[in-house]
C-alpha cells in the first residue's frame, strides 16, 4: 500500500513536471503563431518558483486554507490517474467518477478561498467558473455514459485497455460525434478560449485569481498545471486509446494539448450565457444522438 501511495504521488509530480514544461513549449508555439519569438521553454517553472519565493498577503485563515485544500484535493486526484496501462497507483480504483468529483474538491477550495478574499471580481469569476462547469459537464457526462455502457467498466485503465484490445479502435473513431462533443468539453474544462469566461482579464481582472499573489498564487498555478494534466490525460485515456508505454502517452498528450491551444488561440471569448447556450444546443444534442445510436441501436463503428 505504501508503495502504491508513493507511485500515486510520483504520478502527481510527473504530471506537474510534464504539464509545466509542455505549457512552456506551448507558449513558445503560440508565440510563433503570433509572430513573436516566445519565452524560454522552462518559463513556467521560473514563474511558479518566483511566485513561491515572494512574500504574499493573506485575507484571513480561510484565504490560506482554501488554497491548501485546493492543492491537496488536486494532488489527491492526480494520484489516481493512470499514466500507462502499467503505471497506475491504485489499479481498479481509478474510477472515472473519482476524477470528476474529487477535482471538484480542489475547485471548491479555490472558489471558497477566492470568495473569502472579499473581492467582488473573485466572486463573479467563481460564479462564471461554476456556470461554465454546468455547461460543459452534462454533454461530456453523457458521452462518458455511452463509453461506460459500451465497455462495461468505469475504470480508466479498463476503458483504455478495451480500446487497445479492440485493435486500437479508439473511441475517437468509434464515437465520432461523442469525440467532437468531448473535445469541446475539454476546451471548456481547461478554460481555453472561447470558454475562458472566468479568467477574462479585460472584464473581471482575472476573476478568481484577483487577490492572489506570491505563494498562494504559486500554489494555485501548481494546482492548475496538475488539473490540466488530469483533464488532458483523462481525454487521452478515454478517446485516444490510452497508452501502452510512456512514450506513446507523451506523444498523445502533447498532441491533444497543443491542438487545444492552437485552436483556442484564434478565437475570442464568449460571454458566459453564450457558453451555456452553446453547450446546451449542439453538443448536448450530438451527445444524446451519439448515446442513442451507440446504446440503444448498438451502431458502433
Amino acid at each position: 500500500m505504501m508503495i502504491n501511495i508513493l507511485i500515486g504521488f510520483g504520478v502527481a509530480l510527473f504530471g506537474f513536471v510534464l504539464q509545466t514544461s509542455l505549457g512552456g513549449i506551448n507558449r513558445k508555439i503560440i508565440g510563433r503563431l503570433q509572430k513573436r519569438y516566445g519565452p524560454k521553454w522552462y518559463q513556467e517553472f521560473l514563474d511558479i518558483f518566483k511566485l513561491l519565493s515572494k512574500r504574499a498577503i493573506s485575507h484571513g485563515w480561510l484565504f490560506d486554507f482554501g488554497v491548501i485544500m485546493a492543492l491537496g484535493g488536486i494532488i489527491a486526484t492526480a494520484t489516481f490517474m493512470p499514466v500507462t496501462n502499467s503505471i497506475v497507483a491504485f489499479p481498479n480504483y481509478d474510477n472515472f467518477f473519482i476524477f470528476v468529483y474529487l477535482i471538484a474538491v480542489g475547485m471548491l477550495g479555490m472558489a471558497m478561498s477566492a470568495s473569502g478574499s472579499g473581492n467582488p471580481y473573485a466572486s463573479i469569476g467563481v460564479m462564471r467558473a461554476l456556470t461554465t462547469m454546468l455547461a460543459y459537464e452534462v454533454p461530456f457526462m453523457i458521452v462518458i455514459l455511452t463509453i461506460i455502457k459500451l465497455t462495461g467498466t468505469s475504470s480508466i485503465t479498463g476503458i483504455a485497455e478495451f480500446q487497445q484490445l479492440a485493435g486500437n479502435n479508439w473511441f475517437m473513431i468509434a464515437l465520432p460525434l461523442g469525440f467532437i462533443v468531448s473535445f469541446m468539453a475539454l476546451m471548456g474544462m481547461l478554460g481555453k478560449k472561447p470558454f475562458e469566461t472566468y479568467i477574462a482579464p479585460a472584464e473581471i481582472a482575472s476573476g478568481p485569481m484577483v487577490e492572489y499573489g506570491g505563494k498562494q498564487l504559486g500554489m494555485l498555478f501548481i494546482m492548475h498545471e496538475i488539473t490540466v494534466f488530469i483533464e488532458v490525460s483523462l481525454f487521452v485515456h478515454l478517446f485516444l486509446g490510452g497508452a501502452e508505454n510512456i512514450l506513446i502517452f507523451l506523444l498523445k498528450y502533447a498532441a491533444v494539448y497543443t491542438l487545444v491551444n492552437l485552436i483556442s488561440n484564434v478565437y475570442g471569448r464568449f460571454k458566459i450565457d453564450q457558453v451555456v447556450k452553446f453547450f446546451y444546443k449542439w453538443p448536448l444534442l450530438l451527445a444524446i444522438v451519439q448515446a442513442v445510436i451507440a446504446v440503444y441501436l448498438g451502431w458502433v463503428i
Binding site: 500515486g8 485544500m69 491537496g72 484535493g73 488536486i74 494532488i75 489527491a76 500554489m219
Partner: peptide, 10 residues
C-alpha cells in the same frame, strides 16, 4: 489520499 494531499499542500 485527500488527507495526504492536503498534508503535502500544507
Amino acid at each position: 489520499m485527500f488527507a495526504l494531499g492536503v498534508f503535502i499542500a500544507f
